[in-house]
Amino acid sequence: MVGTALFFLFAGLAIACAISMVYHRNPLYSAISLVGVFISLSCIYVTLAAPFIAAVQILIYAGAIMVLVVFVIMLLNLEEDRPMQRLRYLWALGGGLGVLLLGQTFFIFWAVMRAPQQAVDPNTTAGKTMDIGRAMYTEYLLPVEIVGILLLMAIIGSVILARRLAQPQLELVVDREEERRNLDDEE
């Protein structure tokens, strides 16, 4: 009973936040809504008996990735999106794709009716930290190592990408950009 109520509460919250994320043009509002989605998903993970994943979800997504995004939005002081300049057919394309995917969702809904209605074993320990840890360092050791290498690559890549250009060079770039914009305006 309580589980059902919690599921619908957090599912509704997640969908509402997701829609508000796409709807808002201000990137910071989008980011806040996305944090809402992450937190409600984390609560759903708790009801799915996966407390470790729930905690990691908050720690990594809400606590690290989105803080970085908010930081970048504040740092660049982004304005609201300008109105669409891209081709009009994108609206049709997006809408069509959305309908297609929703149809697919309900196809899944219909197809998994044959799947187990109840958890195979309600007292399963699948979500326990100990099991995840053991699986991670025995059966899935190679993927974990690969992910480690991937993270190392990401660190090096982002340091190289985000390093400052030498100041004169940066000013040159900015000058050139402003010149180009002025030319555009004159046209």
Partner: peptide, 10 residues
Amino acid sequence: LALSGILFTI
């Protein structure tokens, strides 16, 4: 799965 599908669509 339905919730996941809706979120993915959005």
